[in-house]
């Protein structure tokens, strides 16, 4: 239902009382995010995960390639909290190192996607007209292509390496970013406050930095947060197929792949890496959703 006119107008008396203390949209958004318990828990979890990943070389109980063939695969125990794999390597250690790789791919490839997407989207949105049409048509076309397949093709031709992984995944994920940024820029460009800024005689640079970017930032932050899990997913997908990270290095995907081979005898080798991936994806998605709710101007209006 269209809300019938119920929104109360703030009375002028009310706004006069609080002396000179305005609350910015950023501040309001932060307050809303703080109230979202699930998103805050996700944030705490993710910060912890990143810290652990950074400190892994010092924190990890074992080395990731240290084998104990005599021990072989063993169930979780006091020495090996999450058990060991078929080569007797400590699973917790391998998951910790895998987290490093997966998160690194997630952040770097997202940064690549962010860079290309923002550049492409702002250019198209700002120039508009014919340039915009051609640029966005190209995005439409690329959108329809089977990128996972191209990434496989790339790894076949160039061999798999982390660098290729960053570039390939980044090159796939920038499309949506470009669309969102372009939509934002285009929408904002038509806004009257941008026209007012032009009327005042502001330079293009000031308009972009003072008026355009602060207002386009919200959706970009939200979408960046939501891109990280899909990047991690794509990396895990490739590593699962054996086309991503190569042994003895590990990532969540390759650990799961190893776990599948022996899940009948040693199910923990599948369950723990799978759980880590799922929980990390959960947290990233919840945080993304929470940020969207907090930053969405439609929510902040009432």
């Amino acid at each position: 239902m269209a809300q019938p006119e119920t929104a109360p107008e703030r009375s002028p008396e009310l706004s006069g009382q609080a002396l000179e203390s305005g609350s910015s949209l950023w501040h309001d958004a932060f307050v809303r995010l703080r109230r979202n318990r699930l998103a805050m828990m996700s944030l705490v979890f993710l910060v912890a995960l990143v810290l652990v990943a950074l400190a892994t070389p010092w924190l990890a109980p074992y080395s990731y390639e240290e084998q104990d063939l005599a021990l072989g695969a063993s169930a979780p125990s006091a020495e090996h909290w999450l058990g060991t794999d078929t080569l007797g390597r400590d699973l917790l250690t391998r998951i910790m190192y895998g987290t490093r790789v997966s998160l690194m791919v997630g952040f770097i490839a997202t940064a690549v996607a962010l860079g290309i997407g923002v550049l492409w989207g702002t250019t198209a949105g700002f120039l508009g007209g014919r340039v915009d049409m051609v640029m966005m048509r190209l995005v439409d076309v690329l959108y329809a292509l089977p990128f996972a397949i191209f990434v496989v093709l790339l790894t076949v031709i160039f061999g798999s390496s982390l660098l290729l992984l960053f570039l390939a995944i980044g090159a796939v994920e920038w499309l949506t970013m470009a669309r969102i940024v372009r939509g934002q820029v285009l929408g904002l460009r038509r806004q009257e406050f941008i026209e007012a800024a032009i009327s005042l005689g502001l330079s293009r640079w000031s308009i972009i930095t003072r008026h355009l970017i602060p207002n386009a930032l919200g959706p970009i932050i939200v979408y960046t947060t939501l891109t990280i899990p899909s990047v991690i997913l794509l990396e895990s997908f490739l590593s699962f197929l054996g086309l991503g990270v190569q042994a003895p290095q590990s990532s969540w995907g390759s650990l799961i792949s190893d776990g599948v081979d022996t899940m009948e005898e040693y199910p923990w080798l599948l369950i723990f890496p799978g759980l880590t991936l799922a929980v990390a994806l959960f947290a990233l998605n919840f945080l993304g959703d929470g940020l969207r709710d907090a930053l969405d101007p439609r929510v902040s209006k009432d």
Binding site: F193, E195, G201
Partner: peptide
Amino acid sequence: KRARRDFQMIFQDPYASLNPRM
């Protein structure tokens, strides 16, 4: 840009004509 000082505009929608983050 300098000449714009002399002519200014007032817009229709007061919700859209002010930068919400300033």
